[in-house]
Design a protein around this nucleic acid. Sequence first.
DNA 1: AAACATTTGGAAAACGTTACCCACATCACC
DNA 2: GGTGATGTGGGTAACGTTTTCCAAATGTTT
Lengths: 343, 343
Amino acid sequence: MDRPAPRRVTIVDVARHAQVSTTAVSKVLRNAYGASPAMRLKVQQAIDDLGYRPNAAARGLRGQTYTIGVMLPELRNLFFADILDGITAQLGDSVYQVLLAPGCNGEKAEARVIDAMVDRSMDGLILIAPVSAKARLTEVARHTPTVVVGRHGSSTAYDTVTDDDIAGAALVVDHLVGLGHRRIAHIEHHETDRVRLAEMPNTQRANGYRQAMTAHGLEAEIDVASTSYTQAGGYLGAQQLLARPNPPTAIFAGADVVALGAMEAIAEAGLTIPGDISLAGYDNSALAAFGPISLTSVDQDGRQMGADAARLLVDRIGQRDRRTAQITLSPTLVTRRTTAALP
Amino acid sequence: MDRPAPRRVTIVDVARHAQVSTTAVSKVLRNAYGASPAMRLKVQQAIDDLGYRPNAAARGLRGQTYTIGVMLPELRNLFFADILDGITAQLGDSVYQVLLAPGCNGEKAEARVIDAMVDRSMDGLILIAPVSAKARLTEVARHTPTVVVGRHGSSTAYDTVTDDDIAGAALVVDHLVGLGHRRIAHIEHHETDRVRLAEMPNTQRANGYRQAMTAHGLEAEIDVASTSYTQAGGYLGAQQLLARPNPPTAIFAGADVVALGAMEAIAEAGLTIPGDISLAGYDNSALAAFGPISLTSVDQDGRQMGADAARLLVDRIGQRDRRTAQITLSPTLVTRRTTAALP
DNA sequence: AAACATTTGGAAAACGTTACCCACATCACC
DNA sequence: GGTGATGTGGGTAACGTTTTCCAAATGTTT
């Protein structure tokens, strides 16, 4: 039972068993030109008989690895899981296998992971919300087909799929203004890197918030707490906002997790939602939809974004010199029980 | 800017640049025996000069790939994310890169993913709660070092890391009995496969529940709803239990998500938690800890499990013929606001 | 029937690394 | 000054595919 496994079946074994050349087997495997139907049948039979599976390392040395690498900054973020679902759904029946690297937040971890994927000769990369410098992304995309998801700013080297975060922020502000709110505050993710500044979704959301407030003639009411897109950041941000001399009647949190943290701070302050204060998030994660929470949130359709990214990538692998594409999806607002009209 | 990338630097380039043989470079790369300190220095310098990175595919063809594959059934389950954290923390500074396959629930998807990892000559595999037949796991483990996490039943082919689910279930029952409850029901995951039956954690939890109830002389009160470890399963299970002629005063859900579903059903029935009914979950996921939910739950220390698994795996890669080890961790109970004493 | 195009199958050379050997130099020890 | 032992470095054959030829057979057109 514990004897070492016998040597793996190789293409040579298959060729011998089918009494053809290894070239012929390779052609059948890749559906390449130059094999008659009779040949295909014979080889396929041998493959099935022997239970042959191609060695990916050997393939990678000459041709493709049939592997697509996905990098995402954080596994716990359910929105990223949605994107991943879209990717796997799109690629489920293809010849490609998706592999992802676990949580790589921070530029250093990200660089390491991208290197690792390039080292492994992956056929294509999907980078979700990468923080690396644009020059670095461009360089990577030059040797490996790449799609960048959730980061604004187009490139001639890689395709992009983004959500229209400015429109998303406007949806929230419009909704709250429609409910009679005027003192609407925002909790943003503080970005330090000046180059990344304009390209990251958090910046876009903050800008969208400011633009929408201005459009409603509420520039005087603009109030932003600058923390981070985490539960702790939401807690802190809400505390800051509530301590203002003239606290807001509504808070637009830049992400659902931020809203969760804000909920705790609001409860601690003895206030109720949405009685005393309205609260909206962004991402429409499963958490937002969960009954007891029931958070009004902006829905980005992560599945669609993932599917689009996968489609673009496969397309580019097949045709590396085509012009790059930028897909922008429109978000929608899902209103739930955390936002209500001013009394 | 968009010119195609130049050919990648290979070991031959490094050897030429350092004026040594490729063998020497290879030795330095792998810290292998047979290279003098002077040689190491010279080669390292050349590697840095040229920005050389070894090609993983070529390595895989001869030696190791320095890649460890992790398979987990579900990305959204936060407990699995904890395990992954433990794995990456343990492997962070090692030479190994962790890659995981996205959600592979079901035997078929699981087989596909395991095949894909074996095809890619990964150095080792960590399988989290796999559902494949034991014979299959044994076969895989025979050619690739493997650690199975969260599945009971020892093997002579692979190491295992599990939580003591029987003890965990007992913790819950003891706690509820201590609060005065007698009619304590359980929502379990229905398992159909007879072979898997004894090895899966859900079965262990249900058995642990029955044993603990019996130990307290409450065999007459044993009441189990058999659904699934999902939110919908919890909703359904709680509905069934509440419809009994003599409904329970406490429910032990086999997993946190199950408890969430149960919460909804209980609220719909017009009952309050913990006033009318106490509720406990299993996994102590971030959801359970979240303020508004505050679910009493069994904590498994996923990080520790992951770290142990990674340690065992690296150990086995280095010494493939050592006896297999079984690590069992003891869970603890985290009491929160969903369980209370009977009035 | 000759000339040319197409289809079919295979031989052999990569791809970039590691493992196995062997050669040589140096050193210690009888 | 032999004789091993040890340290140091390299030559070369794998590893399992794909790719690039090329040759033979077959089909098609003049």
